[in-house]
Design a protein around this nucleic acid. Structure first.
Length: 300
DNA sequence: GGGCTGTACTG
DNA sequence: CAGTAC
DNA sequence: GCCC
DNA sequence: AGGTG
DNA sequence: CACCT
């Protein structure tokens, strides 16, 4: 089933609903909202009037199985459906019959913990530990916890920490980055690596799992090292949420520009598939404000 | 009808 | 490359 | 799915 | 991963 | 094996 875009559309609708200040009480109110069309407004109306949605009753256990499989980190829709097609229905079936990848084994091992959201205070605590370790390696390292945390959410799905360093003295954060990871591993804060840090080619993004000493749950953590000049673009990108990012990037695209986590580029020409044919010219990356201005978007 | 963000990592 | 994830 |  | 030389 | 997709 090719429900990819429908899924994205629903997520957009949910996001739009959450942004509403007042509860929606009718079809008419719902359909006025950008991102909610006739089909979704009808479903909203049914929920308002009857308290539930009949179509949900038709959800089969098959759908539940596929959904649960794809909740494993490292398992997406393609693999979930493949497993289902082979007749597997439970985690036990999977463990018995499938040769799991390294990250899938970890995802399964930590499955229950990773489904839980993280209380804001715990994100603060974990961030503090990362920051202290970073500071001991190089006092000029700057750590910023981004993602839903920086958006002020009371709970977070994971912990995203951006690491940079004022490079006016010629040094960046990419060297200390690997050292930081090792320190955090030695401390026992980082418990599992989801990205494999191949010795030589240092990557700029680390995905892993951590646990506070004496903590109860495994938590997903992402660390990024970012060139100081790109900080604005990185903040914009890693602060999200994803729907906001997509709208900004789409706006850039309409203006023959391109926005990514490194910066904003102009004079982009694109092919049929939407892929850039031109490198374009970098016009903003250092601050978020710069990028908003260059895009013609009012700052906050 | 046809598009719908852009990038990095894994195997 | 397809798949996954951010 | 929604929107142009 | 699978395919190539 | 290194390299491509």
């Amino acid at each position: 089933m090719n429900d990819e875009w429908r899924t994205i559309s629903y997520r957009k609708a949910i996001s739009a609903l959450k942004r509403q200040k007042k509860p929606i009480t009718s079809y008419q109110e719902a359909i006025k909202i950008r991102g909610i069309g006739d089909r979704t407004a009808e479903k909203i109306a049914e929920i308002i009037e009857t308290g539930n949605l009949r179509r949900l009753q038709h959800f089969s256990e098959d759908d539940e199985v596929i959904k649960k499989f794809s909740d494993i980190w490292g398992v997406g829709s393609a693999i979930a459906m493949k497993w289902y097609a082979k007749g597997y229905r439970t985690f036990d079936d999977i463990i018995q019959n499938v040769k799991l990848t390294r990250v899938q084994r970890i995802g399964l091992e930590c499955f229950d913990d990773l489904r839980e959201r993280i209380p804001r205070d715990e994100v603060t605590e974990i961030s503090k530990r990362v920051e202290e370790a970073a500071c001991r390696i190089d006092p000029k390292l700057l750590c910023i916890t981004v993602g839903s945390y920086i958006r002020g959410k009371p709970t977070c799905g994971d912990i995203d920490i951006l690491i940079t360093r004022n490079n006016t003295d010629g040094k960046t954060s990419s060297g200390p980055f690997l050292k930081l990871l090792n320190t955090l591993r030695e401390q026992g804060l980082l418990t599992h690596d989801l990205t494999k840090h191949q010795e030589e080619n240092a990557t700029s993004r680390y995905f892993g799992i951590c646990k506070l000493p004496g903590g109860e749950k495994y938590r997903r953590i992402d660390l990024f090292t970012v060139p100081f000049n790109e900080l604005g673009a990185a903040l914009l990108s890693f602060t999200g949420n994803d729907i906001f990012n997509r709208s900004m990037r789409l706006l850039a695209r309409k203006k023959k520009m391109k926005l990514n986590n490194h910066g904003l580029y102009k004079n982009i020409s694109r092919g049929r598939g939407g892929d850039s044919l031109t490198e374009g010219t970098l016009i903003a990356q250092r601050t978020e404000r710069e990028i908003f201005d260059a895009l013609g978007v009012p700052w906050r």
